[in-house]
């Protein structure tokens, strides 16, 4: 049995034929849609490397069945920059050494974007660390990651104020 599901991925509307309901959102992105920025670490919900936004909320794409997400809006790391202009979180990760090998980074950045959007951590580093605990980094870039999020959040708030004025 095949299911056609509709997804909006990084702003693009797509109808995807799911020929096997076992396929996860992660495998759909990586294996069928050539969006390999989203990484597979554990494939079991334990590392956060596969984090994407579904309907603006961060989730582990390895534990989401694609067929169950019919109609969803998905944002991956490929969809956050504007052309050559990096997303403020991407830029802040580079400026603050928020990475070493980079494998966890797409998941960290998507999770950070989700965290900032939730708007609950404020500028408390402890709340940011707790809110990011679903993203493991084997290289231990945690200190830079926290700094990057604080900086990106401050910059996004300023830009937001600028737009409103």
């Amino acid at each position: 049995m095949s299911f056609d599901i509709a997804l909006t991925i990084n702003g693009l509307h797509r109808v995807v034929a799911i020929d096997d309901p076992r396929i996860t959102l992660l495998d759909l992105l990586r294996e069928r849609l050539d969006l390999t920025g989203t990484k597979k670490g554990c494939d079991r919900g334990q590392c956060g490397a596969c984090t994407v936004l579904v309907d603006d909320r961060r989730v582990n794409s390895c534990l989401a069945l694609a067929v169950s997400l019919d109609g969803a809006v998905v944002t991956t790391i490929e969809g956050v920059a504007h052309g050559d202009t990096l997303h403020p979180v991407q830029a802040a990760f580079i400026e603050n050494d928020g990475l070493q090998c980079g494998f966890c980074t797409p998941g960290q950045i998507m999770s950070a974007i989700g965290l900032i959007r939730e708007g609950l951590a404020g500028d408390d580093p402890e709340r940011i660390r707790e809110g990011m605990s679903g993203n493991l980094c084997r290289c231990g870039a945690y200190a830079g990651i926290t700094e990057a999020i604080l900086e990106a959040q401050a910059r996004m708030q300023l830009e937001h104020k600028g737009e409103a004025a």
Partner: peptide, 8 residues
Amino acid sequence: ASAQLRNA
């Protein structure tokens, strides 16, 4: 769990 898991 984690923020991602609690969202799902």
